[in-house]
Amino acid sequence: MSGDRREVIRGRLSELRSRQRKAEGLRRIAVSAAVVALVSGALAAVAVIVLTERGRTSLDAVKSFTVTDRTHTTEPVRYPQTPPVGGNHDPAWQNCGVYNQPIRDENAVHAQEHGAVWISYRPDVPRAEVEKVLTAMAGRDYILLSPHPKQAAPFVASAWSKQLMLESADDPRLSAFLRAYIKGPETPEPGAPCDGGVGEPLL
């Protein structure tokens, strides 16, 4: 083999190597770009899911009230909210459970004082819609369910000093409200009875 041919072969080899190196460099850049894109895409997706889920069950729309009166009275009480979220009330509390007739505000407020959440519905809401509330109740006690003839929203969830208006019983915020406010931190007498009072619930 002549020295010239060796030179030529060496030259082509180094050319090939440098091409290879360039290709490897490009590939590395492409791979890292893909990884970065994938990871940030996944993070963004997680963030979107978390944020929408938070939004769906957010309790930002819950209204808070300051309730100071809580004495027993057999007289009718005028409450500033409809349905009420606390105040003076009847000596007898309403037994928790499901009613298909309106219950007295004064008895329901006493149950709220003991930690009950009162889910009330406008009387014209279809029965099938109302029955969806039973699913949201899911084995919890300390819940009153009844129609309220004077309320504006289809559904209202009311606990002592807390209230949430709802258009539908499917709204996941209903379950979130129950979780947050059944015997919640605002309850004046958490764990006091929600049976042994007045009323014969259907369930």
């Binding site: 930690g115 029955e131 039973l134 699913t135 109740m137 899911a138 084995g139 919890r140 300390y142 379950s175 979130a176 129950l178 979780r179 947050a180 059944i182 015997k183 919640g184 958490p190 259907l202 369930l203």
Partner: peptide
């Protein structure tokens, strides 16, 4: 923690109950 769960009652027992628990109806009855 809140006083009530968002899941079904008894879900935490992971099947450790022998009393009839099967197919609890979605809608309670008397």
């Amino acid at each position: 923690l809140p006083q009530t769960s968002s899941g079904r009652p008894m879900a935490w027992m992971k099947g450790r109950h022998h009393v009839e628990m099967t197919a609890k109806p979605e809608q309670p009855t008397p």
